[in-house]
Write a protein that binds this DNA or RNA. Structure first.
Lengths: 168, 168
DNA sequence: TCATATAGGACTATAATGGTACTGTATAAA
DNA sequence: TTTATACAGTACCATTATAGTCCTATATGA
């Protein structure tokens, strides 16, 4: 139904919490307490994200998890891919050969294009972006951006408000 | 897993087929044959889309389904909403009160913003857009009249290629 | 050593999805 | 009026995906 899984959602909540102190080490238990989710669930997510390189981990006393990269370098696209596989708006966007009508589908390529658009959008929202207090997405920005401008990619922090002015 | 359901996908395939002759009336059986999908499945989809106003229907001999609006006025967002409910990238984007941490979630508003971005993107892709032969979203244009899956591009009015230049 | 904390699976219950079948109703044409 | 056609509505079930939990193993610092 065109949505990320609840666990992915939780994953972003956890990462956003960690991004508040990007260099700190967090145990699964303490994080669970902070985001008010069951420890078992938080632990499961942390393990997956650690395994895939999004987090560093250390065992034993004083152990825990740390962001492997600065918050501005971790995108929603990356988190989603780690927790639920490649972003694919249609089945054939993720893997070809599964859909029975793929070979004569008139609009597969166009769906792939839509997929690319969404993926690109998710790539440009970072953990840092998530923590911005701005909320007025979808409302016209005060300043009209120049048409066809190239957005800053991961170099400059981009707020969601800026996206709302991109006419998408 | 951030994807539309297979049935939604099929729905767009059916609608795109109908959009080739926007004023024509199609029976479920004939459409099923044309898009090479089971009649029962196609019929199910047509009924849903008809009930929700996307299609007009008539019974009896010579009956069938017709697009209720011109192809350029039917967007992917509309089709998705008809077939799987409101676009909600997170659970709380569709309906509030379901997520246990909603009340103290630090990033809910930002997810709502992402949701709005995606929704807006889907609103701007119409059936007409889907039928454009352009395919290489996010890639440089090239011209090719191939029948295969190689990217081909035209300079038609509103193509997905143009979206790919919208910085999303 | 021992308490702590992660690593890696296994497991179960629930929900969503995909696909099909069946009964009912309206309509055009013979 | 009869009949074949085609949509309307809904129920059903098999499969898959998701969410959540639990258990054992391993590493580490005090």
């Amino acid at each position: 139904m065109l949505r990320v899984s609840k666990l992915t959602d939780y994953g972003t909540v956890i990462l956003a919490r960690m991004a508040l102190s990007p260099a700190a080490t967090y145990s699964a238990a303490s994080l669970a307490q902070q985001v008010k989710l069951p420890t078992s669930t938080v632990s499961k997510l942390l393990k997956i994200m650690s395994r895939s390189g999004l987090l560093d981990s250390s065992r034993g006393k004083q152990g825990g998890y740390t962001l492997a990269k600065p918050p501005q370098d971790i995108s929603l696209a990356e988190v989603i891919e780690v927790l639920e596989g490649p972003v694919g708006i249609t089945q054939c966007s993720r893997q070809s050969g599964l859909c029975q009508i793929e070979s004569h589908c008139a609009i597969r390529q166009q769906w792939l294009g839509v997929n690319g658009m969404i993926h690109k959008a998710l790539q440009q929202v970072s953990l840092e972006t998530l923590l911005q207090p701005s909320t007025s997405i979808g409302q016209p920005a005060s300043q009209e951006p120049s048409a066809g401008m190239e957005p800053s990619v991961s170099k400059e922090p981009v707020t969601l408000n800026e996206y709302s002015s991109l006419n998408l």
